[in-house]
Amino acid sequence: MMGAPLDLDAVQAFLHIAELDSFTRAAEAMQTTQAAISLKLKRLEKRLGHRLVERTPRHVQLSAHGAAFLESARHLLEAHDRALTTFAQTRQRLTIGISDHVAGPELPALIARMNAQDPQLLIEIRIGSSGDLLQSFDRRELDTVIVRQYLGRSDGELLAEEQFGWFAAPNWQRRAGEPLPVATMAEPCGVRALAEQHLDAAGVPWTEVFVGGGVPAVVAAVMAGLGVAALAPRMLPFGAVDVGARLGLPDLPRLPILLHTRIRAGRPSDALAALAAAFRSAVRG
């Protein structure tokens, strides 16, 4: 006898803990409490007869048994979802706008995770500036936007606050007596405006040497040695250097990331909760 079947809700909780490295983020993804997540995990561990997660004050880590169970857990939930979609009549659609300065290198993995979680949910992504995306949201062209806090907007749910710095290539040196060469995104861009305001307020002479159509283009210009850019550390490849202190550049504030959505229930809401939790983990590290 194999015993009682596994609780799929508990298996889902285990997967969220493993993928998000956090009981708190897992609770957000499942729209429940941290205590409920812990209870689900304990129930699963009791059923399997092994400890799956090692808890420490600073982080969570899979045990050897947890790592061995991880792939089987994914296959189990995928099979469950396939069984349900056999009887699904229509696919639901979720349109999401994500700001250039929010959509980091982890975005493809996050979207893939959402697709795997609910194959019957058709997810459409648009990348753009916070201002343009908010206008599209207000016109009801997008269901949800994840953007930087925008001037004049006080609504939205705070997902995280992210520190920005002045980054350059590892061997880049500023030429004495010349204005600071800055790589930026094209207008309108809130981060660009913030960087300009802080440089002007600090009396730092500067000049634009590169204007890109997206963060990846600005990052490429920085790593090519064209100049410096105001960016979040997670946007940059390994080796980029924060030169703000060395060059006496003004400190940049932490910038809020906000979620604006009209989705309140159903499968799109579940997928969105998982995406928001994943963004919180990515930003906070």
Rank of each mutant, 00 (worst) to 15 (best):
F210H: 00
E187Y: 12
P253W: 08
A195I: 01
T56H: 14
P216L: 02
L151P: 15
L20H: 01
L15G: 07
A230V: 11
V219C: 00
L77D: 01
I37A: 05
N171W: 15
V228H: 00
R280K: 11
G66D: 07
P179K: 10
H50F: 11
L84H: 11
L159M: 15
D7S: 13
S63C: 09
A103V: 01
L76C: 10
D81W: 11
I125C: 03
E54S: 13
L77P: 04
L226N: 10
T32Y: 04
F23K: 06
A276W: 13
Q197P: 05
A193D: 15
H16K: 08
F210W: 01
V147P: 00
T24Y: 12
A29F: 04
L226Q: 14
A220S: 13
V145F: 02
M2K: 14
I17T: 04
A27P: 03
L259Q: 13
A271I: 06
T85Y: 11
I127W: 04
L107G: 07
G203H: 02
F238Q: 15
H260N: 09
R262C: 02
V218T: 06
A240R: 04
Q89T: 13
L194M: 15
N171S: 15
P216S: 04
Q120K: 13
Q173W: 15
E187F: 11
G239M: 05
P250Y: 03
L226E: 10
V228D: 03
G190V: 13
